[in-house]
Design a protein around this nucleic acid. Structure first.
Length: 276
DNA sequence: AGTGTATCCTGCAGGC
DNA sequence: TGCCTGCAGGATACAC
């Protein structure tokens, strides 16, 4: 999906437009986006005020009053657009009408995304099941390193598991590993303390860089106003098969495991450390 | 515990 | 132009 930086960019764009507005009604054009019946969804959403627009991992989270949460997971191709936007809504799934005349559309070509309305308790337990926020100051390198010790799964898979760290997807997992010079298939518990800390720093720096550039647009991703993100040109490995590593010139390689593509520089990210 | 595979969907690029 | 294959920022469920 849209990963953490893309969700964050969307949230920042939505906040001024949505903060304090009341959702007058919702129209559900694609019921499979919900996890409840359209009738129930409409009933629960209508008349509630958006108190806060935030993010947890890759989820866009709107706090409502009366208390509740509107939670949007963008899946692979979900977009949350305020209309009018520079990029038209081509596959609208849910359309919210706001009391100030504004329109918010959840648009999703592939419909892997989810739009849910949760009680405070439901949201609390959902959030509790997710890992720490990587940009939270409380997300410490030594904590992450300690958690790496408990898993033998490939470090790229470890990073994609939202229960371990929230918000990292395939682009930024690959990018962080390249920055930290770690082979994506290395078992998590084989990383040295130094590598663990390097990875921790790389995750944060790549996410911050992506946010600063408005996210990475490869295909579908657009911000709340329909604009593309500018981070794609800064990618070091993702999608760069057979192109030269910008650090050393070696050709980037694509491997597949865990049913996902992984990209790496075989020179910068050897399986074993070079003996020099 | 971890891996491989399949599934939910649609669209696009590339090869022939 | 058409047809085919493979691929895609995600999440989950299953068998082994």
């Amino acid at each position: 999906m849209p990963e953490l930086p893309e969700a964050e960019t969307i949230v920042r764009g939505l906040r001024p437009a949505l903060h304090g507005t009341v959702i007058s009604r919702a129209r559900v054009l694609r019921p499979d986006i919900l996890r409840t019946s359209p009738a129930r969804f409409r009933k629960h959403v209508a008349g509630r005020r958006i108190q806060h627009v935030g993010r947890r991992g890759k989820n866009i989270v709107m706090e409502l009053d009366p208390p509740g949460f509107l939670v949007v997971n963008l899946g692979m191709t979900g977009r949350l657009l305020t209309l009018p936007s520079v990029s038209p809504s081509t596959h609208p799934a849910v359309r919210f009408t706001l009391d100030d005349g504004g329109v918010l559309v959840y648009d999703d070509v592939r419909r892997f995304g989810r739009v849910e309305i949760l009680t405070p308790g439901e949201w609390e337990s959902r959030s509790a099941a997710m890992g720490p926020e990587p940009l939270d100051p409380h997300f410490a390198g030594h904590d992450m390193f300690a958690r790496l010790q408990t898993s033998r799964s490939p470090i790229r898979s470890w990073l994609l598991d939202q229960r371990r760290v929230a918000g990292v997807g395939n682009i930024y997992a690959n990018e962080a590993l390249w920055r930290a010079r770690i082979h994506p298939a290395r078992p998590a518990n084989t990383l040295t303390r130094k590598e663990g800390h390097a990875l921790h720093g790389a995750i944060r720096s790549v996410l911050l860089s992506a946010i600063a550039n408005g996210g990475t647009t490869l295909r579908n991703y657009r911000d709340a106003s329909g604009k593309r993100g500018n981070h794609a040109r800064r990618l070091g490995v993702y999608g760069r098969v057979r192109k030269p590593c910008v650090r050393c010139g070696t050709e980037i390689v694509r491997i597949v495991f865990g049913n996902r593509s992984a990209f790496l520089c075989p020179e910068c990210q050897p399986w074993e450390r070079h003996q020099t």
